Computed example of a mutant assay.
Amino acid sequence: MPLDPQQFNELIRTRRSVFVPQFEPGKIIPDDIIWQLLENANWAPTHKRTEPWRFTVFTGAGLHKLADFQATLYKETAGFKFNESKYEKLRALPPQCSHIIALGMARSPGGPPEIEEVEAVACAVQNLALSAHAYGLGGFWSSGGVTYTEAAKAFFGLGPEDKLLGFFNLGYVRTPGSAGKRGPVQAKTRWVAE
């Protein structure tokens, strides 16, 4: 059965990043919906069918485990750049989410160039974001905190050649995001017909 193109266009154009302060406190998304979001993410395009996305889902007490891990690792590795408010934020924000999905990229020996694997994970995250929006959920892709800290990889089940690409934070929307803006696509497009 074909999709209604107008509904699909509306889904894409109304999706917004919804941040932790906009989540409904204490309202937990059922796990079966999270599994559906992950299944949709799993259908992203992937060169050579490597399916490089790796997800680690945190919820309940797992959110506190994530908060403790990232705050401690930040404190241990920040050196002179250590910032107390950033440390406190790393401890405080995860438990305010329903779920947080760590976004990993696994490398395959002899697989495509790394950039193509990163792009495949980004497509999976777009599927995740659109699916969350379709279910009336809020979320955002964060690449802060310990995302690019080499010592974080093992905690998320990633090997030395793999990458941690961030976190997708999820919750029910209490306060919707503002209307989005985009410049005209014509200003970003070259059209070659001859």
Rank of each mutant, 00 (worst) to 15 (best):
P2I: 04
R190C: 03
P45A: 14
P184T: 10
G183H: 13
W35C: 04
F168T: 07
F168W: 04
F55E: 07
W191T: 12
T50I: 14
Q70V: 07
K153P: 05
L170I: 10
Y148E: 09
E116T: 02
S98Y: 06
I34N: 01
S131E: 05
P113A: 09
E161D: 15
N40Y: 09
P109A: 10
N127V: 05
K89E: 14
R54D: 12
S178A: 15
K153S: 01
G104D: 09
E24Y: 08
E84R: 13
L63S: 09
G60F: 04
F80S: 11
E117G: 08
K48G: 00
G157E: 05
I28H: 09
R182V: 00
G159H: 05
L165K: 03
G144F: 04
P25S: 02
L103G: 05
H47C: 01
H99Y: 10
L130S: 02
A154S: 15
P95C: 02
C123E: 11
K153D: 01
E76I: 06
Q186M: 05
I100S: 05
D162T: 03
T50D: 03
P2S: 11
Y87N: 12
E51A: 09
G177N: 06
T77S: 11
P112K: 00
N83D: 15
T56R: 07
Q70T: 01
R107S: 08
A151K: 15
A71G: 13
E116K: 02
G138R: 11
P95E: 04
S108Y: 13
L165P: 10
V185W: 10
L137M: 13
W43M: 10
G144K: 04
R174C: 03
K163D: 13
R49Y: 12
S85V: 12
E76T: 13
L11K: 00
G79K: 02
L137T: 12
I101K: 07
F8T: 07
E51N: 10
G139R: 02
Q36T: 13
V146S: 06
W43C: 07
L130M: 05
L66N: 04
K181N: 11
F140E: 04
R190L: 14
F156K: 05
M1P: 14
Q7H: 03
P176E: 10
P112W: 05
N9K: 11
L63R: 01
Y135S: 03
Q6R: 10
P176A: 03
T14F: 06
